[in-house]
Computed example of a mutant assay.
Amino acid sequence: MSDSTALSAEDLIAQYGGIALDKQNDLSALIGNNNWNADLNEGVISFGDQLTFPIQILGTFSHSSETFLWGWANTQSNIPENLLQQAAQLKAYGEAHQLPLFTTSQFDGSVNDVHYIGLIASGMFDASAYYVADYGSGALLVTIQSDVIDKTRTDAPQRVLTVFPQLISLFEMDHQQALSSYLNAKAFQVTTKDKELSATYNGSTIVATFDELSRLASLNGTLS
């Protein structure tokens, strides 16, 4: 995570949201319908008997109060400090760049906000994925780092055509900036001219156009 350029939360979701949401597809395919189980003493989350991954804890969401509590502010749960490193780094980043999202210990929100934070953190820390572990009264937000997940990653160009529209339907952002960042992260060669973007990767081409507000107008692909 670089502090060289101050970014707003909207900039961050545009920069990291696409590739992070892409990674969620890989995690979902890998864990299937397995239930989760977290062991904070070991610092891991498990899905069934075969899949166990190291985690970092970002925070918790309460369904009843509809509030998000950052892990660094959750003194009652005695979360091991080594599992709060990323949460602490996000707080420091927020303090340096005046981002209340990362510095307000507890705030009103929705499950959508939990995913918003998860996507940003997953991208900023180059995590394998994030996971919202629902335990009934609330949910635990974690990032996951595992070679097992990384090795299942698909670079299929056609995924862009489904993931990107999903991303911009969920969150406000600069669509042109977000698509360019997503395609760069997937190793496309990206060219932009005014409100047009073209990108190529291994013989596949994606072309997009945007309106005067940088909102997506069209997205098409010629995929090999």
Rank of each mutant, 00 (worst) to 15 (best):
residue 114 V to S: 01
residue 99 L to T: 09
residue 89 Q to W: 12
residue 68 F to H: 08
residue 135 Y to Q: 02
residue 79 I to Y: 06
residue 76 Q to T: 14
residue 88 A to M: 15
residue 60 T to K: 12
residue 90 L to E: 01
residue 122 S to K: 01
residue 119 L to D: 08
residue 90 L to W: 06
residue 82 N to V: 08
residue 72 W to N: 06
residue 140 L to A: 06
residue 71 G to D: 03
residue 96 A to E: 15
residue 97 H to D: 07
residue 98 Q to I: 11
residue 57 I to V: 15
residue 75 T to C: 09
residue 73 A to N: 12
residue 132 V to P: 09
residue 134 D to G: 10
residue 70 W to V: 00
residue 96 A to N: 14
residue 110 S to L: 07
residue 71 G to C: 00
residue 116 Y to A: 09
residue 91 K to I: 02
residue 52 T to K: 15
residue 72 W to Q: 10
residue 125 F to G: 10
residue 149 I to M: 01
residue 75 T to M: 11
residue 61 F to T: 02
residue 64 S to F: 13
residue 114 V to A: 04
residue 150 D to G: 11
residue 122 S to W: 03
residue 75 T to E: 15
residue 61 F to K: 04
residue 60 T to G: 10
residue 117 I to S: 04
residue 85 Q to F: 10
residue 75 T to P: 07
residue 130 Y to T: 13
residue 148 V to A: 13
residue 71 G to I: 05
residue 102 F to I: 01
residue 137 S to G: 15
residue 78 N to V: 09
residue 51 L to T: 11
residue 109 G to N: 01
residue 102 F to P: 06
residue 140 L to G: 05
residue 60 T to Y: 11
residue 126 D to C: 09
residue 126 D to Q: 15
residue 107 F to C: 04
residue 50 Q to N: 14
residue 66 E to S: 14
residue 134 D to L: 01
residue 128 S to P: 01
residue 99 L to Y: 07
residue 142 V to K: 03
residue 113 D to R: 06
residue 84 L to T: 02
residue 150 D to C: 10
residue 53 F to T: 09
residue 137 S to T: 13
residue 123 G to L: 11
residue 62 S to W: 06
residue 104 T to N: 13
